[in-house]
């Protein structure tokens, strides 16, 4: 009986939370409309969530591309198909690894930072102080951060993919015996702008929207204590990562499945 009651409480709390998150998103989207007039605020946040995430994205993209080059070559060479290495690396990155890994890294680096920052602003009454100064914190704090995450995520995914392709090139052409021209030609012939690149961009836009929404909402909804902020930060990384992986399956099914 107790476990049924606990399950019921969990379901009710989850539905309430989802309702709060949806209302928060609606208010934030209205806030985005107003904040577009204050470009400087958006630019500051693009720097904080985007530019400061570039290093981890670039390094990760390089290593992922190098591993793809190495693994891809070892597999393809058995079938005498090492000339397709460029295509394998590019498709893996544009369709899947670029958007998904960037979103996971973005949730860990920028998402957790957003949640912690907003949560601490709440814990130290900064958000309440803004409200009392007749400044709407959703418009002034949440909306620019949300918009910045939404803008930065696809750009970071594009960067990850491009650097990954270069990483594959370094290994395939630089260390192994794949011809440089063949590496690029296979990519040029096999990668479709709409089926591969555009679908990858759509994925990264969706992931950027969801990860930033989760991060900003968790900060805003955090209990105003150090423990509350810590829990909210953890929840951001866990929920955002699971959401990215779940959404990736759904989007992949819609985009690439013949079913």
């Amino acid at each position: 009986m107790t476990s049924i009651r606990l399950l019921g409480r969990w379901v009710i709390n989850s539905v309430l939370r989802l309702g709060r998150a949806t209302m928060f998103l609606t208010a934030t989207l209205v806030g985005v409309f107003w904040i577009l007039r204050r470009f400087q605020l958006i630019l500051q946040q693009v720097f904080a969530v985007g530019v400061l995430t570039v290093l981890i994205i670039a390094v990760s993209g390089l290593f992922v591309g190098m591993v793809l080059g190495l693994q891809g070559y070892n597999t393809l060479v058995d079938f005498g198909a090492e000339s397709s290495l460029g295509l394998v690396v590019a498709l893996s990155l544009t369709r899947e690894l670029g958007p998904v890994l960037t979103a996971l890294l973005f949730a860990g680096r920028a998402g957790s930072a957003l949640t912690a920052e907003i949560g601490l602003m709440k814990a130290t009454s900064q958000l309440a102080g803004m409200e009392m100064m007749a400044v709407d914190p959703i418009e002034r704090v949440m909306a620019p951060r949300f918009l910045a995450g939404f803008i930065a995520m696809p750009l970071l995914a594009a960067m990850f993919t491009a650097i990954g392709v270069l990483g594959g090139y370094l290994i395939g052409v630089g260390m192994l015996s794949v011809d440089s021209g063949v590496y690029w030609t296979s990519m040029q012939e096999g990668v479709d702008v709409y089926d591969d690149i555009l679908n990858g961009v759509i994925k990264s836009v969706v992931f950027g929207f969801v990860v930033t929404w989760i991060a900003v909402f968790e900060g805003y909804d955090a209990a105003p204590t150090s423990e509350g902020v810590s829990r909210a930060t953890t929840r951001t990384v866990v929920i955002a990562s699971l959401a990215v992986l779940g959404l990736d399956f759904i989007l992949t099914s819609l985009m690439f499945s013949e079913i």
């Binding site: 602003m121 130290t124 009454s125 900064q126 309440a128 102080g129 409200e131 009392m132 100064m133 007749a134 709407d136």
Partner: peptide, 19 residues
């Protein structure tokens, strides 16, 4: 409400300065 708050000032216990 926001118009009314423009005519109010509040000093919080934690000061609530923007860090």
């Amino acid at each position: 409400l926001y118009a009314l708050r423009k005519q109010m000032g509040m000093m919080f216990q934690s000061s609530a300065l923007l860090t």
